[in-house]
């Protein structure tokens, strides 16, 4: 029995609704393997999601799961983490969910450095509603709402997260699933806001509209276009982790940010303890004066 079978809600929630060849299952499996390898008690893990194809992921696995509204999963997760700081809080989002309708929550979670792991399945399109252009649809590419090519610039989710203050930022692909699993494991171990973007394939819509072939061709495309950041660092021997050079249509993968910084929930409880003790001291002093 595979690790996956220990966790899937196979009798209740299957068959799943993802299309044949979708990358979401690979992303979810990587997450589940990462959680399992860390030996987390499943009752201490909570998966939270919003709306969309990616947001279906928590439905299929046996952890504590909460399905919320479009773009707001991180806001719900913030509330949960504050009252249950010991839980491993994981949010699964798609690209539209994370950086379009939920973009505000995303950057503020990064800024706050709250100890939550955000996994973004980036298939560069709104899959569930029929292939609308998303904020990560590359310029010049096609979606149903941009039949003559997208004229908007795409968000680089990792750059956005790093710029907004996330303390762990990594990008993997569904092709390099083991590597992605390693990134997720590190993200789960990280204290602070961690983001793992998984570049994924949507053969049903994105692949079809952009003539990328079937799932296998799309996975090969990921293999051929993912450039590990280490290679680039070696070549330029520069330490600038997010480079601006044109990669000729390729994209960087790897861990871009991994740094320590004070974490929101610990700071919050520290402050609460401090303020309470000060208040007690003041009250005692006032009593003595009387």
């Amino acid at each position: 029995m595979s690790v996956m079978h220990k966790y899937i809600r196979s009798t209740k929630k299957f068959p799943h609704l993802w299309c044949a060849g979708c990358g979401n299952g690979i992303g979810l499996s990587a997450l589940v393997r990462a959680i399992d390898s860390l030996g987390f008690n499943r009752n201490e893990v909570i998966l939270i999601s919003g709306i969309g194809c990616a947001a279906r992921a928590p439905v299929y696995v046996d952890f504590n799961t909460l399905h919320t509204t479009h773009g707001r999963a991180l806001a719900f997760a913030t509330g949960i983490k504050l009252v249950k700081p010991n839980l491993h809080v994981v949010v699964i989002m798609g690209d539209g969910d994370a950086v379009a309708i939920g973009g505000n929550h995303f950057i503020h979670s990064c800024r706050r450095n709250i100890d939550i792991t955000a996994i973004v399945f980036n298939n560069r399109i709104y899959g569930m509603t029929g292939g609308q252009c998303s904020p990560t649809t590359p310029r010049g590419e096609y979606a149903t709402t941009v039949p003559y090519g997208n004229i908007d610039y795409a968000f680089d989710i990792c750059n956005l997260a790093a710029g907004a203050g996330a303390t762990f930022v990594a990008r993997g692909t569904t092709y390099y699933a083991r590597e992605t699993e390693r990134f997720i494991r590190k993200a789960l171990e990280h204290k602070g806001f961690s983001v793992v973007e998984i570049i994924s394939q949507c053969p049903t819509i994105y692949g079809r509209l952009n003539k990328m072939g079937g799932p296998i061709e799309m996975l090969r495309w990921l293999r051929d276009h993912a450039v590990p950041i280490e290679k680039v660092r070696q070549r330029w021997s520069g330490e600038s982790n997010l480079l601006k050079e044109d990669l000729g249509g390729k994209f960087l993968t790897g861990i871009f940010v991994d740094r320590e910084a004070s974490e929101f929930v610990s700071e919050y409880y520290k402050m609460a303890a401090r303020v309470r003790s000060e208040t007690r001291r003041k009250t005692k002093q006032t009593r003595r004066k009387r």
Binding site: H70, M128, Q132, T144
Partner: peptide
């Protein structure tokens, strides 16, 4: 001004075709 949501999506999809 459009944003997709089931079951409305198809309506503005159709309209966007007319635009394009």
């Amino acid at each position: 001004a459009v944003y997709p949501i089931t079951p409305q999506t198809e309506l503005m999809h159709k309209f966007s075709e007319y635009v394009y």
